[in-house]
């Protein structure tokens, strides 16, 4: 049992990176990570030993995210751009800072599914097939 929990916790930094890239908002990202951990730890017996824990967790996070997006579309979104702006990821260097800002702005405007593909491929280095499985979309739409 402890090995399973350990395997979950080992992925927390990656889950946070994914969530921040996805949401561009630290506080919402940490909420998403927390929800993912709660869901995963309460269903740990559903995870099959020997299968990829990271992929399982990313799948849970994706599903929670998609459900949240659907709910917020139904309700109308509450996010105020001024609230989000200063919580955006800090630019790593002076020279690229403008491009990073453009990139994060562009990412907010992309459909969330495309951001997920971008992040899973570019940051996580996952194979297209794995990305398609996590997001539950046809392989052809990943590329």
């Amino acid at each position: 049992m402890s090995e399973k929990v350990e395997a979950v916790l080992r992925e927390v930094p990656r889950l946070r990176r994914y969530a921040v890239a996805l949401l561009s908002d630290r506080s919402r990202a940490d909420d998403l990570v927390q929800d993912t951990l709660e869901r995963a730890l309460s269903r740990l017996n559903l995870w099959q030993s020997g299968t990829d824990m990271r992929r399982w967790l990313f799948t849970i996070m994706h599903n929670l995210h998609v459900n949240a997006v659907r709910r917020s579309i139904r309700r109308g979104t509450e996010t105020n751009i001024d609230d989000v702006e200063d919580r955006l990821v800090q630019a790593p260097s002076q020279t690229d800072s403008v491009m990073v800002r453009d990139l994060t702005v562009a990412m907010r405007e992309l459909p969330s599914e495309q951001v997920e593909v971008l992040v899973l491929v570019a940051l996580e280095g996952l194979a297209y097939r794995e990305v398609a499985q996590i997001l539950d979309i046809p392989l052809g739409t990943v590329m």
Partner: peptide, 28 residues
């Protein structure tokens, strides 16, 4: 750029609230 923007998160300390929530989970 994506990696430069987001990779630093991997090194960050995990906010305690996240782990605290994990501890209080009641496994179903």
């Amino acid at each position: 750029l994506l990696r430069e923007s987001f990779d630093s998160i991997l090194e960050e300390r995990i906010p305690e609230g996240i782990l605290a929530a994990a501890v209080t989970v009641r496994p179903r």
